[in-house]
């Protein structure tokens, strides 16, 4: 029983470990050049040695990602609320929202620099642009899927549009909003790194560009692993917040499982 739990919870970890072992063996056995593909052990050593150097980059990327994530999510929620409360606006704007996700960031980013310079603004625009969309779409679905019989009760009791939104539709969509936030949280780290390529004083993106142009492949891999770690961490934090704010839903789920 305990063995099964360990296996279930630890499966991704074991798989990762296996992958690293294969990777390590391949690089050693085939004597792959370090600048082509460094061994995981070499990457780890490099990571530890340059940790002091890296922490500054890590902090500025985290700050950038968090700020962009926050702004993007707020905008997403706001857009969803406006589109939901004014259905005629929704018809006109919704297609544009989808189009906004088709703008290639790689092309847009240099333009933003031309327009707004090298400061924070163009970077935050890039991150917000990728972060707002999942939140907006998920929240809209949440508002729309409010159960009919609950809405009916509110209307029969004479609830106004405001009460209907704040006391029914918004609380109902909180689990939906969290789904959107989880996607946005992972996107925000990628968004931050890409926006740092535009030009920044520090950040994982900067570190990565420098390492890449110096053929320090080990450092490129260090930054890749850092980005993955940050994404996972953000995701985990949102997950914890969700568990706290949507505790009623979790209990409901447990009941369903017990019933089956």
């Amino acid at each position: 029983m305990i063995g099964r739990i360990i296996w279930k919870k630890g499966a991704p970890f074991f798989l990762l470990l296996l992958l690293l072992i294969v990777w390590e063996s391949v690089t050693v056995l085939l004597k792959v050049e370090e600048w082509l593909l460094p061994a995981p052990s070499a990457i780890l050593t490099e990571g530890i040695e340059s940790f002091h150097n890296l922490s500054g980059h890590l902090i500025s990327t985290t700050e950038l990602a968090l700020t962009g994530f926050f702004i993007g999510s707020c905008i997403g929620l706001l857009i969803a609320a406006i589109l939901h409360l004014f259905p005629s606006v929704k018809e006109a704007v919704y297609p544009l929202l989808i189009l906004s996700q088709n703008i290639p960031i790689i092309v847009l980013a240099p333009l933003l620099v031309i327009w707004f310079g090298f400061g924070m603004l163009p970077k935050l625009i890039v991150i917000s642009l990728v972060c707002f969309f999942p939140v907006a779409v998920a929240s809209l679905d949440g508002f729309r899927q409010t159960p009919y019989e609950l809405k009916h009760y509110f209307k029969m009791m004479g609830a106004g549009r405001n009460q209907l939104f704040w006391k029914l539709e918004l609380p109902h969509s909180i689990p939906f909003i969290f789904s959107g936030l989880k996607i946005s949280a992972t996107y925000s780290v990628m968004g931050a790194v890409i926006s740092e390529w535009l030009g920044a004083k520090s950040g994982i993106g900067v570190y990565m560009t420098l390492a890449s142009s110096a053929f320090r492949t080990d450092r490129v891999f260090v930054s890749i692993f850092l980005i993955m770690g940050m994404s996972l961490l953000f995701f985990g934090i949102i997950n914890l917040l969700e568990k706290y704010f949507v505790s009623w839903k979790r209990k409901e789920g447990e009941k369903d499982e017990a019933g089956n």
């Binding site: 019989e149 609950l150 009916h152 009760y153 209307k155 029969m156 009791m157 004479g158 029914l168 609380p171 109902h172 909180i174 949507v246 009623w248 839903k249 409901e252």
Partner: peptide
């Protein structure tokens, strides 16, 4: 005109949260 009666529907319609 709405809001003049107290209503109990066929389904309990309690808010799950």
């Amino acid at each position: 005109l709405k809001g003049h009666i107290s209503y109990m529907p066929q389904q309990p319609s309690l808010l799950p949260w």
